[in-house]
Structure formats: structure tokens, C-alpha cells
Write a protein that binds this DNA or RNA. Sequence first.
DNA 1: TTTTGAGTTGTTCGA
DNA 2: GTCGAACAACTCAAA
Length: 475
Amino acid sequence: MHDAALIWFRQDLRLADNAALAAVQDRPLLPVYVIEDEPGGPGGAARWWLHHSLVALGRSLAERGAPLVVLRGDPRRLIPDLAAQVGAAEVHAGRQSEPAARRRDAETHDALQRDGRRLVLHRNALLHEPHRVRTAAGKPFAVFTPFSRAVFAQLADLPPPMLAPDRLAPAPGTPQGLRAEEFRLLPAPPQPDWAREFPAHWTPGEAGAAARLAAFLREGLAQYGARRDVPAAEWGTSALSPHLHLGEVSPRQVWHAAQARGGAGLPTFLKELLWREFSHHLLWHRPEMPDQPLRPEFSAFPWRQDATMLRAWQRGQTGYPIVDAGMRQLWRSGWMHNRVRMIVASFLVKHLLQPWQSGEAWFRDTLVDADLAANAANWQWVAGCGADAAPYFRIFNPVLQGETFDPGGAYVRRWCPELARLPDRFVHRPHEAPDTVLRGAGVTPGHDYPAPLVGLGEGRARALAAFGAMRGGGG
DNA sequence: TTTTGAGTTGTTCGA
DNA sequence: GTCGAACAACTCAAA
């Protein structure tokens, strides 16, 4: 009989293709999740997701014979205690890229080692190992295209995903698993319940992830190249981000399933998975990325912090329909389409000159997929201070973006119902509509829908001037 | 070490 | 209405 082992679930809440689980599935097993109440932990929307995902994981584990134990507190103390309690020499877990998680794991490993035990980390959340992918000069990548070539070459012989174990043996001395009365340990649903619409959009958990993946491959992958930019398209994007974030499905499962399906949209879709890898690569090597601009000269950028502007943007009251539709989709569903994320981010950072960190924080609190690496990397990209960032003069025009990617206004009409009856010609520019048109559509100007926070020409010129000031005088 | 080519996602202006 | 050029110059990766 093998020694008992702990499997410590974190961002790999699945049984299939779980390298940490596979390493110990033949031993008496104690599966554990530790809820850490740390500042900088998951935001409200992500906590909603985590709650339901843990319930799902707990059920699957219980069905297989090894109930999940959920604890709340500091894992540096709880994990070694638990390992001692069941006599486990090893604790297995998936590797994480977040700086706080890496610190915590190092300290947990030290604590275990003092008792002659060890923490064994596995690649579970990524296709590549951030410390094993390097440029020819031995440095981490800072440009996407060469990074993607290097990773793609490595993935040619990616092994197929592993199946979920059928039966698991509980470790003797296992404390009680997740029972109904212990659900109070789980993150509470937010109050007031702004998440009330989330269940209509999402099914957290491994089964929900598998269903979403299958549906996307069936309905969306073939057209992905063109339709991914249309926010009103039902299967335009995979919407797998929250499932991937908590590891309810592994990137390897997605990669293999997409390749098996094939089709015209495949290369673009695989490239998006590699953007996720790239973000984690960056965070691994630049742990300051969530707070500090990767290009240091941006520390001197003349932001104009303004709580009123920020709040109008957060609530979807900027006066630009595609921006407001996106921000309201985010608030109500916990998610926003990728194209619209770029538009709203560019608007906040450039037209409103609010620091990208404000937008990053709001996204992290309201997105169900709130992935620290992807969120920080993409905000920095839009702001122009990130890796491979957009040139500063690339300023999205929210009206043109709306008219290009939401031509009939279906997306705007869905999330901004007060604009639903405007004719196509004005649905993305209600501020230019004559009063007769507005009244005919049931819109009272300045009452039902706000006037633009800033003129597009003015906002653009101000952003260009701010960048110029940073380059010229700031640094 | 030096050199060279390349680099997610745009907009505006003028011919 | 369409098209190409300008925007501004820099860093990175690899030969």
C-alpha cells in the first residue's frame, strides 16, 4: 500500500487531465481546497464562480469516494497540519503564476519540509512552463510572435489529455468532507445579489466547462476567424475564459479538442490560447505587472484621475453606446466580449485619461474570468505600456468600432434598451441624432441616455498630447 | 557584437 | 467612395 497523499486544489478544479491528481490517484487521498481571505484575492464575480465550482468539484469527488475538504485560513499552516494528520509525505498541486501564490507555495513548501514532507507542483494551468521557454539568448520573451513560434514548436508532440479517475480511495483519518453545513465556508454570494443573472449565462464546474467547449467546437470554431469580432454573434467566441481561469477544463484539453475538430477558424483560436500562455509567461517573469507599467517611462504619464469619470465608465454611462453596452454586459453577466473589452479599455485610458490600473481593478472585481495575468497584460497592452503594446497613436474610436463590429446595433440594443428603437444610422451616435429622431425612438436627450463624457476629437487630441508630454518632458 | 527585420486587434487625411 | 500613407520611433529576437 502506498503512502497517503494530499491533493491541494487551487486553479485546477477538475478531475480529468489533472496532472497533480494523476500523480496520486492510486494512493489513499485527501483532496483539499483552502479559502484564503487575503486582500487581492478573487473579486466579487470570481467568488460567485468559485463558490459554484467548489460545489461541483465536491460532488464529483464525493461520488468517486474521496470527499473534498474545504478549509478557510492560511494554507501555510493548514496544509502541513493536514498532511501530518493523515500521514501524507507529499502534497501535490498545480503550479500557479500569480506572485502571491508563488510566495505562498514557497513558504508552504518550507513549512512542509521542516517535517520531512514536500510540496510537488505540476503543470496544470498552462501549455508551457514559463521558466522553460526562453529566447536564444536565454531571456524570457517580451514579444508575442516569437514566443508563440517557440511554444507552438514545443506543442507538436503534446501528449493527449488524461482521463478522470473512476475511483479514489480516501486517506484514513480524513476529516469530514464538504457537507451542507460546511457550505458556509464557501465564499458567500454577493449581497445585494447583483449576480442574480449569472446563472442564466453560466454553468460553473467541470461538466459545464465540457459542455461549453463542445458547443463552441460545434457551433463556433469553423467561423471563429471572422465572427470572433462580432459581439452580438452567439458563438462568436468560446467564452471559455472563466472555465479556464479556475481550471475546470485544461488548456491541453481545449487545444486537443480544437485540433481534432479542425477547420478554418482553428489557427486563430489556437493563437488566442497562446495569448493566454503569453500573459502568464509575462507575469511569471515580471511579477510587478499587475501594478507597475512594464515600460518604466509610463510612470511619468500624466493621468487625470477623476472618480466621476471612472464611475460613469463603470456604470455604462459614458454616452458612447458600444462602451456603455460593454460595461453593462460586464455588470450583469460577469463577462464582456473581447473586442468590446478593447474598446472600453481604450476609451477609459485614452479618451478619459484614467490610469489603466483603475480599469484593471474594476475588471478584476467584476469579471467571472478575472485572471490576474491576462487582465494585467491586456490592460497594459491597451495603455501602451505593456509587452508588444499598441503604438500610442492607436486610439479606438468607439463610434467607428461600433459601426464596424456591431453594424445593425444588435449588441447595443440588447444591453442599452433605452436605445433599442433608434435607427441603425444613429444607434452608435445618438449624440448626433436630431431631436425628432430621438423623440421618435422614445429617447429624451440627456434624460434617458447621457450626453458624451468627452468629444471624440477632443479626447483623442488630449490623449496624444499626454503621450507627447510623457515622452518629451516626463522621463 | 552588430545588424537587420519585424512587430494582435487603428484612425485620419488627402489624393 | 476607396486607397495608401502618415502617425513616431523603439525594442526585441535572431542571424
